[in-house]
Design a protein around this nucleic acid. Sequence first.
DNA 1: TGTAACTCGTACTTCGAAATACGACTTAGT
DNA 2: ACTAAGTCGTATTTCGAAGTACGAGTTACA
Lengths: 194, 194
Amino acid sequence: MSTDIRPRRRADAERSIVRIVSAARASLSEDPDATIDAIAAAAGVGRMTLYGHFKTRAELVEAALIDALRAGEETLSAVDLGGDARGALNRLLASSWALVAESAALLAAAQGVLPAGRIRDLHAGPGERIEELVRRGQHEGVFRTDLPIDWLVNVVHYVLHGAAEESRDGRIKTADVADVVTATVRSILDRPST
Amino acid sequence: MSTDIRPRRRADAERSIVRIVSAARASLSEDPDATIDAIAAAAGVGRMTLYGHFKTRAELVEAALIDALRAGEETLSAVDLGGDARGALNRLLASSWALVAESAALLAAAQGVLPAGRIRDLHAGPGERIEELVRRGQHEGVFRTDLPIDWLVNVVHYVLHGAAEESRDGRIKTADVADVVTATVRSILDRPST
DNA sequence: TGTAACTCGTACTTCGAAATACGACTTAGT
DNA sequence: ACTAAGTCGTATTTCGAAGTACGAGTTACA
């Protein structure tokens, strides 16, 4: 599943690919319209080398996005989700918002060149993590059940993205973001008392 | 403030401008990348006529956005904001989400060609309307005061946009959107019981 | 150490859409 | 009815960035 059945790649090629992908991730996270030339330069690699591995810009963007998601997955899998659902959620959000903020521009780039469905598919991982947590909270009786679970999961994403934007534009101090996000999301998910 | 001090325009020119702007609004709301040719065609006007009134694409997009916001403002100003803040909010949201959904693509187009600050300025109107309402709710003691008001206002926007997207992609039935949005926003704004 | 894989420069083509130029025709408004 | 303002077609230019072609040099690795 994760191993390519391709003809075989030389070690230096692997190295180039890694450098390119990570340069692409960095560049596109800065500027979603970063040019291929710029990315190649940032990777310290000739443009033609890049084209040797990624025939098209879309392919490159996709690889960068996948890499970012993989890294995010890695970070999030280190978060302790034990204990009650609310606490777990808080810890998860604290780690999540920074990831979202980091890759917001990259995501924008992807939205420009990849079909919406593809992007959604790639986000399946992070989505499931939250969905599972929401379900758990519902079973514990602390989270609401009066709205579709898909909406609950997605609205958390929207809030995270919003917070990332506010933070980027300096309307929320970085130190406050986590608190604001958790307070907001908690209000959304908590079982309404009324 | 709203009347141009320009040299003077002929009646047919005014008419052309109106047709162009409204065609631009419609076209860009369908496809944020709509070409100038397409817009001119949709307006039933020659491309050169369009260029006669809008020197650049950005100018045209801005005019379309302003027009959409003006129309929205008009719709929203018809909403009765009397009574308690919660009820007023519900009515406001019910009208708002459809407007947001309608012009989501247009907004995307604007984000591509206009500076972020400019877009934010143009949105001042709708923002104030909600802000005022939130303040009122705070005075009535029903809305929370533990988060910055700017965030509360903006997060409502993010939720509206999210709902519009969910609706567009068919993940929420149109009939349900208003309920989902109001329930969600209400949870966000209500004074937390804990 | 031989060779296939890889690197990478330079120069070129492609492409779509924005913007300009020019000029003939038509219409509004006094 | 006169004239400036407005319409609009066609043709051309501009532009940036994506992608292609070719080929010489370099490196991994069996």
